[in-house]
Each structure stands twice: as structure tokens, then as C-alpha cells.
């Protein structure tokens, strides 16, 4: 046992890859067998991550989730700001600009609204729940955009970990709601053609939520929705810690 512990401690990052890999595999299995693909494996994996952080927080009394357990310290490096930003930026490489041009004005309108509307909803609720500082309000508002925009914004602005955790949880919950809710409301919101699918992708954001939701509605709509949704995170990461933060700061002060 001691030898095993030593191997884990000396190779922290590798241990993290192995552990997270197992969690991803487990999540995909749960997604397939328990939810029949309705809920994406990625959302399940993030929920498992948050749950593990919760359990570890109770157990150790620390503030850094599973990282406070020495055996899992490598997860801190894997999910730290450096590799996180590196991987998020890399996703932009898959965006095909010539395809995106086809989404045109309607896609741009949907993207803008899809960033601003959830941000307003999240920020107003953050204020209603007693947050008064601009950094926390912006981070929670950004979390309502997507679970990536939230922590990226929080880290950039220096929000505390509890607020960042809230913003991730809000974003994940939103993604799950989109996955489950889309097939139910598809008829009502006119989701049966490529144009509305692109509007939908731009507005809802979260690629996992959009592709999961559209796949359950009509598989053929997925590429159209994903097309606009892929821009959502980039746009959110650009405007939330900048323009939107400055606006919130001007209103809320400090």
C-alpha cells in the first residue's frame, strides 16, 4: 500500500489522468445504460467531479475539494488554470469559419442574446441571494451562460472558490436541463428546421447541452445547432470578464 501511495504521489499528474479517465468511462457507461444517451456522459462526469469535491470537503474540512487529499493532488494540476485555459483555447480550432458564415446575422443575434440574457438572469439572482461585490455577481452571471464561461471568468477576476463552484454547478444544471427539456419543448419553439436549430445553438450555448438535446429531438439538426454553439463559449469568455464585468462594476460598485 505504501509503495502504491508513493507511486501516486510521485506521478501526480499521471494519477490524475488515470482517475479522470476512469470517471469519464464510468460516466459514459451510466449515460448509455441508465439514461439511454439522453444525458451526456460529460455532464454526468462533471456532476461526479462536483460530488467528489463535496465529499472531500466534508471529510478534510479543506477548501480545495479532492486536491486536499494528497493522493489526488495531481488533479489540482490537471484541472488548474494553465491546462484548463490551454484545452479551452484548443477547442476553437474545430470551428469552421466558412460554415459559420452561413449562420449569418441570425446566428450572431442568437449568440449575443444567448450570452447576455442568461448573464442578466444569473446576475440578478446573485444579487437577490445577497451577493454584493461585482466579481461574485459577474462570475455567477457567467455561470448561467455556460459552465466554462463561469469558472474562466471567475479565475480571471479572482473570485473565490465557493463562488466559482456555484457558477460551475449553475452551468452544469443548465446544460442538463437543456438536454432533458429540448425534446419536450421542441414543437412549441418551432425546432424542426436548420435555421431554428442554429438560433437554438446560439442561444442555449453549452455544446453538450445543445448536441444532447438536439440529438434526442432530431439527429439531423445536431450539426446546425453545434455550429453556433461552438462560438458561444469563446464569445462568453471574451465578453464576460471584460465588457459585462465593467458594466456590473459600474452598477454594483467595487
Amino acid at each position: 500500500m505504501e509503495v502504491l501511495t508513493h507511486a501516486f504521489l510521485a506521478n501526480g499528474l499521471l494519477a490524475a489522468f488515470a482517475i479522470v479517465g476512469l470517471v469519464m468511462w464510468l460516466s459514459n457507461a451510466i449515460s448509455k445504460r441508465l439514461f439511454f444517451g439522453r444525458i451526456h456522459g460529460s455532464a454526468i462526469a462533471i456532476v461526479i467531479g462536483l460530488a467528489a469535491a463535496f465529499a472531500a470537503g466534508l471529510w478534510t474540512g479543506g477548501e480545495k475539494g479532492v486536491v486536499d487529499i494528497p493522493l489526488f493532488a495531481g488533479i489540482g494540476l490537471m484541472g488548474g488554470a494553465m491546462l484548463r485555459d490551454f484545452a479551452i483555447v484548443a477547442t476553437a480550432f474545430e470551428v469552421d469559419v466558412s460554415q459559420a458564415r452561413k449562420a449569418g446575422a441570425i446566428g450572431a443575434v442568437a449568440l449575443t442574446l444567448g450570452t447576455i440574457l442568461p448573464f442578466i438572469v444569473g446576475s440578478v439572482l446573485a444579487v437577490a441571494f445577497g451577493y454584493t461585490d461585482a466579481v461574485s455577481i459577474t462570475t455567477i452571471g457567467a455561470g448561467a451562460v455556460t459552465y466554462i464561461v463561469g469558472p474562466v471568468t471567475g479565475a480571471a477576476l479572482g473570485a473565490n472558490s465557493a463562488v466559482i463552484a456555484l457558477s460551475i454547478a449553475t452551468g452544469v444544471f443548465k446544460a442538463v436541463l437543456v438536454m432533458i427539456g429540448t425534446p419536450i419543448v421542441a414543437k412549441m419553439i418551432g425546432l424542426d428546421n436548420p435555421r431554428s436549430a442554429m438560433v437554438f445553438g446560439g442561444l442555449m450555448g453549452t455544446v453538450s447541452g445543445v448536441s444532447g438535446g438536439l440529438a434526442a429531438t432530431d439527429r439531423r439538426l445536431v450539426p446546425y445547432g453545434a455550429l453556433t454553439a461552438t462560438f458561444h463559449t469563446g464569445l462568453g469568455c471574451l465578453v464576460a470578464p471584460s465588457v459585462l464585468y465593467l458594466i456590473v462594476r459600474a452598477i454594483a460598485g467595487g
Partner: peptide
Amino acid sequence: IPIVVAMAAQQNVVVAARSGPLVLIA
């Protein structure tokens, strides 16, 4: 996504959970 999972696993969820309703309502 795996990196985001690792990121989620190191947040201060215990404190965040105290304002749970905010997540649901937002």
C-alpha cells in the same frame, strides 16, 4: 471535458452547496 471534470473536483463545493437554491433557480 476531462480537464473540466478535474477542475470541478477541486472547487469549494461544501460552501457553494449552502446557497443551493441559487443554482436551481438560476
